[in-house]
Design a protein around this nucleic acid. Sequence first.
DNA 1: TCAAAAGTGTTATCCTTACACCCATGT
DNA 2: ACATGGGTGTAAGGATAACACTTTTGA
Lengths: 326, 326
Amino acid sequence: MSEPLVVGLSAVIVAVTDETPRVLAVRRPGAPGAPEGWGLPSGPLDPERDRTLELALRSWVRAQTGLELGYVEQLYTFGDRERRTAGPWDGPREISIAYLALVREGAAPGPAGATWLDVYDLFPWEDWRRGGPPGVDPVVAPAAARGVGPAGGPSRTARRERADIAFGLGGAAWDGDRVLDRYELLYETRAVAEALRDAGGGSRPTAGTGRALALDHRRILASALGRLRGKLRYRPVAFELLPPLFTLSQLQRTVEALAGLRLHQQNFRRLVEQGGLVEGTGKIETRTGGRPAELFRFRREVLRERPAPGVGLPGRRRRRSADGAA
Amino acid sequence: MSEPLVVGLSAVIVAVTDETPRVLAVRRPGAPGAPEGWGLPSGPLDPERDRTLELALRSWVRAQTGLELGYVEQLYTFGDRERRTAGPWDGPREISIAYLALVREGAAPGPAGATWLDVYDLFPWEDWRRGGPPGVDPVVAPAAARGVGPAGGPSRTARRERADIAFGLGGAAWDGDRVLDRYELLYETRAVAEALRDAGGGSRPTAGTGRALALDHRRILASALGRLRGKLRYRPVAFELLPPLFTLSQLQRTVEALAGLRLHQQNFRRLVEQGGLVEGTGKIETRTGGRPAELFRFRREVLRERPAPGVGLPGRRRRRSADGAA
DNA sequence: TCAAAAGTGTTATCCTTACACCCATGT
DNA sequence: ACATGGGTGTAAGGATAACACTTTTGA
């Protein structure tokens, strides 16, 4: 086989600092004619040297950014023809195997050309910690529900149905995990910048739909955030983002940052303690702004005791709010 | 880039017939010198013709087997160097993007050279519907716990810990989803045939460890089964395997077949009905062997009403049986 | 003394589990 | 009549969610 086919690896490297989830981004040269911008770090798979895909990833991430990755999991493989910017450019078909990696806050920021971006600058509609995102909900959701074709036609109603489920409208519940569904609806309805860029059109994206990334990297990041939110429920991934010793508030704020939700404090503590996920150390952290807090550590033994140890987010049960409006 | 790198797509096509989960397998020529055997259907990605990876898959599956796939999801991308049979053969590095597809029972069996294999012939230790698999548990679990290196050494105890969690030993709970963990432990301890084949050794696999597939295809299938079991809980995938109208017993037997567990009948019915997953049709199926059963259909509206509609398997909560033995 | 954050206790509600029992058909 | 599988009701246990309240520090 000698089709023009290139295989690369992409990394969604996530950290949580000061209650904001961040993702590592690098400067991208941009396709011929297109402006340069931020994108996910990516690198090659060297079939000679790298025994496994994951080792390949760790190796070029180390080389490019100086980061030594801890938790790594494969996310998804993206290979649609349209994934690169549309246009006359007709290079080889590119396939990208995306990975999700978690690093502790305060990890090295990497060399010049790399920064940490606030995840919610890219997905403003995903952060519900301060109630509905300011001014975004009334804009984004209708944009997503907007269909093409005649009003009431099958394409319109089908998209309407999808938008209701994705954005929790019309009696449906908001499901934090459906990050990708929401992004794809916004893309299909040309609300986000990438959709306009890829279509070659010149109009402006809908306000409040966040900043763009190169290629399909915002889509990849949407997959990652959705996956991470889901995983919080049944794997102790939050601890990968925290130092070995932490207060329960730190833990809660980290989880809230990823989930994009406020959680009930007292119940959170109880669930996490009674669930056996953490154990107190007797040590005390005094710089809390109020009463000093005990420092906890992750209890690895929980992996043996419980089939699916996670932090108990809301949702996943019956229907919640049914505010029936519009 | 012009490294020797080949990208292919593999399909795990699952159906449930007569309470047994089946997977479509094809005859494989086998590497030079190796005997031919069964493997998963696989095909190329044609960068010219196929716009997306999933369309590529659907297209060659249709061509090869005549099957028109319904539900399809991407599973994982396998690309370790060792995934093909070890040995002097030094062809190009092969990357395989694996998909999981579900088809209804009674789907066309495909052309000559393809058959449906009973999934539990490949993973006998995964079927707990008739209690512990006959004679397997006492054999397989110890094999998985067997370590290399000195007794009590770090490698031994680490593997012991992993085996406890994977197989639900020593107070840990059996987690049906950990199919891949279990297979990998058996592989690492050289209990399954593929491990011996890949190592080039001549000894015989541990009894009760099931039949082998070509390359790493049994590993791929293990991923698929684990994924499917997990998904049953929060997505209505079981209906992809059933005809449009079905009795609640049919539904239950299908779920049980995949989960490898017996479920409590009365509660299953209630959960599934009260959960709004199905609705009665008034139609009656008389050939039940007892009282005629009502025919139900899947309620698509549930997708709008509930964030994560699934069938409620046990597990996923606190610890269950703690039979502390061994 | 007050604000702020940590930490404890108690109760209501809902879901899951388990058990008991009745219904409709074929042999 | 009885075996077989379909179908319904009800009560116990447990987990979550919501509420009220106390403790300990710094300003």
